[in-house]
């Protein structure tokens, strides 16, 4: 992977000026490359990684396994595309194995997610069955630990 993308994946807020120094490039070259990645759709967005558990708000996330009947010609893509349009759906993947689609669905509470599953998801043409698991606690999200790490314990000066 391009080192520029590695840097942005670690910290999307890294300034083009800093990246330019790290990669021995001009600032303009870095900006142009980022713009190009955005235009190509390789960079799809920039988000903050939150530890939502620390916020004083009501929220739940469910992981839902879905079995579907693939359509002739459309395969899984058409139904997956329809499901992905619901704003409740945070992530959606086609899986190998015992089920077909894996969804991450967010809601205010259990009831809201249950309503989405029974009223929207399960009733879609092609959906054969669903299995819903609720998340209890987040330990790591997008490669980031949700537990605050100990401060640097190294000696302040060493040979």
């Amino acid at each position: 992977m391009d080192e520029l993308l590695t840097i942005l994946k670690n910290n999307a807020l890294e300034k083009p000026e800093t990246i330019a120094r790290m990669l021995n490039l001009s600032v303009d070259a870095v900006k142009a490359r980022i713009a190009d990645y955005e235009k190509q759709g390789i960079i799809r967005g920039y988000q903050a990684i939150l530890n939502v558990d620390q916020l004083d708000i009501s929220h739940v996330t469910a992981v839902i396994e879905v079995k579907v009947t693939p359509e002739r010609e459309g395969g899984f893509d058409r139904i997956a595309s329809r499901i992905s349009r619901y704003p409740e759906v945070q992530s959606l993947y086609l899986m190998s194995g015992a089920y077909d689609l894996l969804l991450f669905v967010a809601g205010k509470d259990l009831k809201e997610v249950a309503f989405f599953v029974s009223e929207k998801l399960a009733t879609l043409d092609g959906v054969v069955s669903t299995a819903t698991h609720f998340m209890l606690k987040t330990y790591k999200h997008h490669g980031v630990l949700m537990e605050t790490q100990d401060a640097d314990e190294r000696l302040q000066v060493s040979p």
Binding site: D152, R154, L155, Q156, V157, S158, P159
Partner: peptide, 10 residues
């Protein structure tokens, strides 16, 4: 302090 004096990996 910010230390650039440490001779071991961070």
């Amino acid at each position: 302090i910010i230390s650039l004096g440490i001779g071991e990996p961070d």
